[in-house]
Amino acid sequence: MATPDRQATTLALAHALSAAERGLAVIPLSRTKLPALRSPHRDHATSAAPTTTTTPATPATPASAPAPPPVTCHGECGRFGHGVYDASTEPARIRELFAAAPWATGYGIACGLSPHHLIGVDLDTKSGTDSSAALRELALRHLFTIPETVVVLTPSGGRHVWLAGPPDVVVPNSASRLAPGIDIRGAGGYLVGPGSRTEHGVYATAPGTAHLTPAPCPPALLRLLLPPPRAPHPAPPPAGDHGKGLVQFVLAAHEGQRNTRLFWAACRAYENGIGPALVAPLIEAARNTGLSEREARATIASAARMTRHRP
C-alpha cells in the first residue's frame, strides 16, 4: 500500500469537493491514476474456492471443484471499492471515500452522469502522433467546431476536452477509434480531475477555461462517437459455403479486430478467385461491425494488392 501524502490528499479532496459543487461526481485516485480503493470482492474467488484436505493415498482433484460464481456488484453491497460506481457529488460521502483512501493524491470525474453527461476527448501525445491536428482534420472533414469549453492539461503534454452530451444518449469509451491518439471517455469511464497529482506530474485547467461549464458536444462529432446502428438483416453473401464463411468471419469481429479480420477474409477471397464477387458483401459486413465504407474499401484494396490482384 502506498505511503500517505497528507498534503497531496488534502489538496485532492479540496479539488474534488470543488468539482462536486459543479455537479461532477468524483472518486479518489492513486498516483497511478487508478481508483484508490481496491474492490472488496477482489479476493472473492480465492475465499469462495473450496478447501480440500488430502493425503498421499487420496490426491486432490481440483478440476472437479465447482468454480466460484462471478462477482457483478456495482456497489449494491454498500462497501467502497467499485470504481466509478462509487462516484458521488455528496460532500459527506466524498469525505468518507477519501478517509478510506488516505494515500489518494488525485480524483477522477465520472463521465456520462447527470447533470452534465460529461464526454471527455483525450488528446494523447504518447502515441507519437499529433492528436490535436487529427481532431482539427476531423472537424474540417465533418463540418463541426469544438466550442469554448473546459480544457485540462496533462503532465505529458496532452489535453482533455470536456463536452456535455445529451441526457438520452450513451456515449461509449473508445481508444483511437476516431483517429490515432484520440481516446473518448464516456459512460463508465472517468477523467483525471484538475489539481490531481500523479507519478508524472499535476493535471491543471488550461488558462481561461476554469470558469467554464462543459459545452454541448457538436451533433456532427456526437454522431462520430456513437457506434453505427447494426442492420437488422445483413445482406446475404453470394452462393458458396466459402464465401459465406468469410462474410460471417467479418461479421463476428469485435472492436480492435475489425480491420484485421476484413483484411484476412479479403485475402482468402482473392486467393480463391471469388474476391470481386465478395467485395460488396464484405463491405456490408464491415459496415455492420462499425467500419466506414471508406475504411472497408481501403482494407479490401490492400488485400487485393497483397494477393497481386487489381482492386
Score class of each variant (00 low, 15 high):
178 L>A: 13
201 G>V: 15
151 V>H: 07
146 I>W: 10
144 F>D: 01
154 T>A: 06
145 T>P: 03
156 S>D: 12
170 V>C: 00
191 L>R: 02
145 T>N: 12
152 V>L: 08
165 G>S: 11
204 A>S: 12
200 H>Q: 13
164 A>K: 08
199 E>Y: 05
202 V>C: 08
178 L>S: 13
179 A>Y: 09
203 Y>N: 05
167 P>V: 01
182 I>A: 12
152 V>D: 12
141 R>K: 15
197 R>E: 00
148 E>A: 14
153 L>R: 15
194 P>Y: 04
149 T>S: 15
174 S>D: 13
142 H>I: 10
148 E>Q: 14
163 L>S: 06
184 I>M: 05
187 A>F: 07
164 A>S: 15
171 V>N: 02
173 N>E: 13
191 L>T: 05
192 V>E: 01
173 N>P: 09
154 T>C: 07
159 R>E: 15
160 H>N: 07
162 W>C: 08
158 G>A: 07
179 A>K: 08
150 V>I: 15
203 Y>V: 04
183 D>Q: 02
170 V>Y: 00
202 V>P: 00
144 F>C: 05
153 L>E: 15
189 G>C: 08
165 G>F: 06
145 T>V: 14
146 I>K: 14
165 G>C: 05
159 R>W: 06
200 H>Y: 10
149 T>D: 13
184 I>P: 02
181 G>I: 04
150 V>W: 03
174 S>T: 15
156 S>V: 06
180 P>A: 14
172 P>N: 11
162 W>F: 12
175 A>P: 00
174 S>R: 13
205 T>E: 12
170 V>H: 01
176 S>N: 14
192 V>A: 08
164 A>W: 06
175 A>Y: 05
196 S>V: 02
166 P>H: 06
185 R>P: 07
172 P>V: 09
142 H>R: 14
183 D>V: 01
192 V>C: 06
175 A>K: 10
190 Y>S: 01
173 N>A: 09
176 S>I: 05
157 G>S: 11
157 G>M: 11
147 P>T: 07
193 G>K: 01
174 S>I: 11
197 R>I: 04
143 L>I: 00
168 D>H: 12
146 I>M: 15
154 T>F: 04
164 A>V: 07
190 Y>P: 01
194 P>F: 04
182 I>V: 13
143 L>R: 12
173 N>R: 11
202 V>Q: 10
176 S>Y: 11
202 V>G: 01
142 H>N: 13
154 T>N: 07
201 G>H: 14
193 G>V: 02
147 P>Y: 08
144 F>K: 02
188 G>L: 10
151 V>M: 08
182 I>D: 07
200 H>L: 09
170 V>N: 00
179 A>R: 13
205 T>G: 03
174 S>W: 10
197 R>D: 00
143 L>Y: 03
205 T>S: 14
192 V>L: 04
175 A>V: 15
204 A>W: 02
141 R>N: 11
193 G>W: 01
166 P>T: 00
176 S>D: 14
143 L>C: 05
172 P>G: 11
143 L>V: 05
190 Y>F: 15
160 H>D: 03
143 L>S: 12
145 T>F: 02
151 V>E: 12
181 G>M: 03
176 S>G: 08
164 A>R: 13
195 G>M: 04
